[in-house]
């Protein structure tokens, strides 16, 4: 798991199994400010529905979700 501080932050969740992807997302939220946008990349099939549910539950905005060839990419904006 790595996080980069480029213009848009990216978090690599590949290889992680439930519940670790959302545990890591929750951790990342503590480092970000309101309105910050980031991309999460995962390969756990559970992530499809889980990232949607996590956003709904926490109130963060799921801007985009792509599912291509076992690679799941979610773009999320942090809300307060």
């Amino acid at each position: 798991m790595t996080t980069e501080t480029t213009e848009e932050r990216k978090i690599d969740l590949t290889g992680l199994k439930c519940p670790m992807p959302i545990v890591q997302l929750n951790k990342l939220m503590k480092e970000l400010g309101e309105g910050d946008q980031f991309t999460a990349v995962a390969d756990d099939p559970a992530f499809c529905l889980d990232v949607e549910a996590w956003c709904k539950k926490t109130g963060h905005e799921l801007l985009r979700f792509e599912n291509t060839e076992k690679r799941l990419v979610a773009v999320i904006r942090k809300k307060d």
Partner: peptide, 12 residues
């Protein structure tokens, strides 16, 4: 513990 940590990660 999976449910507990998952719920806590959802802010519960």
């Amino acid at each position: 513990f999976v449910i507990a940590t998952g719920a806590a990660a959802c802010g519960m």
